[in-house]
Amino acid sequence: MPDDNNTGTPVLQVRSLVKSFGKLRVLDDVSITVDAGETVCIVGPSGSGKSTLLRCINLLEWPDSGEIYLRGERFGFRENDRSREVRMNDREMAHIRTRVGMVFQQFNLWPHLTAFGNITVSPIHVLKRPREEVEAEAEALLAKVGLQDKRDEYPIRLSGGQQQRVAIARALAMHPDVLLFDEPTSSLDPELVGEVLAVMKGLADEGRTMAVVTHEMVFAREAADYVVFMDGGRIVEAGTPEEFFSNPKTSRAQQFLERYR
């Protein structure tokens, strides 16, 4: 559970992020803030930059400019002894990354490890937590996502929905400050989407800090504390679910929501 002592500092703060791929400007001065316990849903048409935004937060992609703060700490850059800004090296980044949990669209489970193994490998080897503690928690997390009987199964034997739930348990095992979800249900067969969204809704209700990129409007409506609408690399509109879904202010948001009526 995130134990946020400074109720004033947002868990995640993104300022003026810019990212281009070649000539295409995918993120155009994007700023977003996620406070402790908040669930933010990021929606928008394909190509609007939503996934890139998430991947920049975790520095899987490096933004061209802009700043990312995790609990007030600058992520990715630090000041060297000459007070100049330098990129963090891999080890410093690895350390911060453990505080940002990531759930991928393609699950990205490691196929040579069982479900249990997938969950325990990082806390043991990266966070260096004691094995018994990690294993006990892994059992609890598997139960939490409803997969305790799949503990010793390899990913090949799990359905997409089951794999994604293991991926969520895997992210939770790292005790992250914030959980990022990159279109977590887009690769799933329709029948399997519900089980994953149920787990995510449970996490949101618990008070986890989450940022979710999704196409599932029903989920966004029910689980989000606020909704961010992106289009063409910019945040076009943001607001509570009630405001956004019932009363979209911009025409682009209105057009987008037409599809889901």
């Binding site: 990354r97 393609q106 990266v126 790292m174």
Partner: peptide, 12 residues
């Protein structure tokens, strides 16, 4: 994608 997951989980 697996290497990415490993990086995201803080592995060197």
């Amino acid at each position: 994608n697996q290497s990415e997951a490993a990086t995201a989980f803080g592995m060197s």
